[in-house]
Simulated scan of single mutants.
Amino acid sequence: MKQQTTTRNRNTWLMALLLLSTLFIMASAKAETPKVKNIVLVHGAFADGSGWKGVYDILTRKGYHVTIVQNPLTSLKADVDATNSVINAQDGPVVLAGHSWGGTVITEAGVNRKVASLVYVAAFMPDKGESAGKWVGAAPAAPEAGFTAPDQFGFVYFDPAKFHGGFAGDLSKAQSDFMCASQVPIAGKCFEEPVQNVAWKTKPSYGIVAKSDKALNPGTERTMYTRANAHITELEGSHVVFISHADEVAKVIMAAAAN
């Protein structure tokens, strides 16, 4: 009888231990699972969505569902519509990340109810009534930077003679040359169109300052992010920091997905 009681107690203890272990494993798995699995990436001017390839590869390997917007760059509304089309197709909440001009786009599109948080990567972060152009002129332009005058169709290009030093200084010359040759122009009027809706006022925001940025002054980036009470990360990179420092940028996006 005593042996039966001992055996029963041992089994009870083992079952309790197994239950605790199972609960611990479940809790750990839950803690490691991000709150948001859908990531939507928005490119800026003079580029297209392919620049996000490195970040895309990292995030998809981590199990995130990543979609990249291809902005028409013809007006703020057109880019916001293109972004909302992608957001609406997601099956749950979204982390919305934008580079450069894409920051203006996500500020508007981010009011979409599916957007949980925003990530600004060397990006504009305007308030209501402000345009990207206001912030372009907030600090003296770097000598390495320059844009062409609008052509007969109203499109503006990054000056090809300054593209490497002003836009992609920490990439190889060969990679920069290809990006320059394939750059997507933006309608100049986009930079003068004011924002009407401001997502960062009601949603968690993250800002990445590219400390060697020549296209958008790093101090301007920092000022906008600070005003918005964004979580700020500073990286030693050029304007295309999301290409040259894809790992670090992906980590910020994952942090946004986890919080």
Results as ranks from 00 to 15, higher is better:
Q3S: 13
T5A: 12
T5Q: 08
T6P: 00
A16C: 09
L17P: 07
L18W: 11
T22W: 05
F24Y: 12
A29N: 13
T33W: 09
K37D: 03
K37N: 06
I39D: 10
I39A: 09
V40N: 09
V40S: 11
L41F: 03
H43Q: 12
D48W: 00
G49P: 00
W52Y: 03
W52P: 02
I58Y: 01
R61C: 00
V66A: 05
I68E: 00
I68K: 04
I68F: 01
I68W: 02
T74I: 08
I87A: 04
N88W: 01
Q90N: 10
D91I: 04
V95P: 10
H99I: 01
T104M: 13
V105K: 05
V105T: 14
I106S: 05
T107P: 13
T107C: 12
E108A: 13
N112I: 08
L118D: 05
Y120R: 11
A122M: 08
A122I: 04
A123N: 11
M125W: 02
P126M: 10
P126Q: 07
K128L: 00
S131W: 06
G133V: 02
F147H: 01
F147R: 00
F147D: 01
F158H: 04
P160M: 06
P160F: 08
A161F: 01
K162E: 03
K162R: 14
H164A: 05
G166V: 11
A168V: 11
A174F: 04
D177T: 09
S182N: 10
I186F: 14
G188Y: 02
K189F: 00
F191Q: 11
A199C: 08
W200I: 05
I208M: 12
D213C: 10
P218H: 07
Y225D: 05
Y225W: 06
R227I: 02
T233M: 03
L235E: 07
S238N: 14
S238Q: 06
H239C: 06
V240L: 14
I243H: 06
S244N: 04
A246E: 11
D247L: 01
A250Y: 06
A250Q: 08
I253G: 09
